[in-house]
Each structure stands twice: as structure tokens, then as C-alpha cells.
Design a binder for these strands. Structure first.
Length: 166
DNA sequence: GCCAACGTTGGC
DNA sequence: GCCAACGTTGGC
């Protein structure tokens, strides 16, 4: 099965690309996804080894793509925070025997040589169909087409060799 | 801080 | 099943 490409959003003030780099094994579980569409992508389509663009949202002038991560868990598994009453992500209605919310693990992979801002993504004609540049697109986990993925990586300064090594 | 866009909830 | 109300996201 060929690798799939994704884009994941995170607020750098909450958990940024640098924070993932500092985690043990540079890997962290991606809890707190509470959107069915995003969950379904994780559950049905995301597999270990898939590559995701790490995108910083709510970051003022620094909104944009900062680097790459890989899916480090075999597949999606239950998000424990849905059963934790002290968590912001607690969901009283999620059945214990059939957890509503899932997550995957992401591992830090490679930083871009330069930030690729949202403005830049929007100004690149070849990316006009990419989900992240579309108006009102709020999904925090989105599929990315290979051609779009490669263009974003090039904008981020990755060499052809680095792209091939992924 | 504003507000447009969107997803979810719940009354009916 | 409709839809108004509400909450959240996220660019600006």
C-alpha cells in the first residue's frame, strides 16, 4: 500500500513542531481530536509510515507549514482523554466498550528549511485545490494529494534527494 | 478581539 | 428530519 499524505494542524502555543521534537523518541500521541471527519480519516485511511505536513495555526504572521512528521502507530486506537473527567476532552457520552474517539501517534521527521506561510500557499497557483487554502476549512487532519505535498516540500526548501528519502 | 464559517446539539 | 441556537476554529 502506497504511503498517503496528510496535513495536521496544531497551535504552536499549545503544542508546536518543536515540542514534538523534544518528546521521547520524538513521538507523541495525538489526543483531543473531536471531529468525526478527522477521526474517520485516522480510523480508515491513516497507516504507519504515512507522512504529514505539520501546520501551525493561530500563529499570527507565522501561520503555515513548518515540517514533516510520520505516523508512528500501526493504526488508530482509542483516545484515553475521552474517559478522563478532568480532561478538556472528556466525553461523557462515549461508550467505554466502543470508544467514540481515536488517535494515532506522530513522530517528528524533518523540519522545512524555511516556513511556508499560508499566504504563500494561497499565492501558489498549483495549490489552489489544496484543502488548507480553502475558505472556512477547519479540519485539523486533512488528506493531501501527492502533487500538492511535493510542491509544499519544495517551497519548504527540501531537496529532491530529501524528498526521495521519505 | 472580531467575526465568518462550519459542526453539533436538541427541541419539535 | 428540519433548523435555530450554540460552540469552536482560525485567519486577520
Amino acid at each position: 500500500m502506497a504511503k498517503k499524505f496528510w496535513l495536521i494542524k496544531s497551535e504552536p502555543d499549545v503544542f508546536g513542531f518543536d515540542d514534538l521534537e523534544k518528546c521521547e523518541n520524538q513521538t507523541e500521541h495525538w489526543d483531543g481530536i473531536r471531529n468525526y471527519q478527522a477521526r474517520n480519516f485516522m480510523r480508515d485511511d491513516m497507516k504507519k509510515g504515512d507522512i504529514a505536513i505539520f501546520y501551525h495555526s493561530n500563529a499570527g504572521p507565522n501561520v503555515g507549514a513548518v515540517g514533516l512528521v510520520t505516523v508512528a502507530s500501526e493504526s488508530a486506537y482509542p483516545d484515553h482523554t475521552q474517559f478522563d473527567e478532568s480532561s478538556n476532552y472528556y466525553d461523557a457520552k462515549s461508550p467505554k466498550d466502543n470508544p467514540r474517539w481515536l488517535m494515532v501517534d506522530f513522530q517528528w521527521k524533518m523540519p522545512f528549511k524555511r516556513l511556508v506561510t499560508l499566504k504563500e500557499l494561497k499565492e501558489t497557483p498549483e495549490l489552489e485545490d489544496m484543502l488548507v487554502v480553502k475558505r472556512g476549512q477547519r479540519l485539523s487532519i486533512q488528506p493531501v494529494e501527492k502533487k500538492h505535498f511535493e510542491i509544499v516540500c519544495k517551497l519548504g526548501g527540501l531537496t529532491a534527494k530529501e524528498l526521495k528519502s521519505l
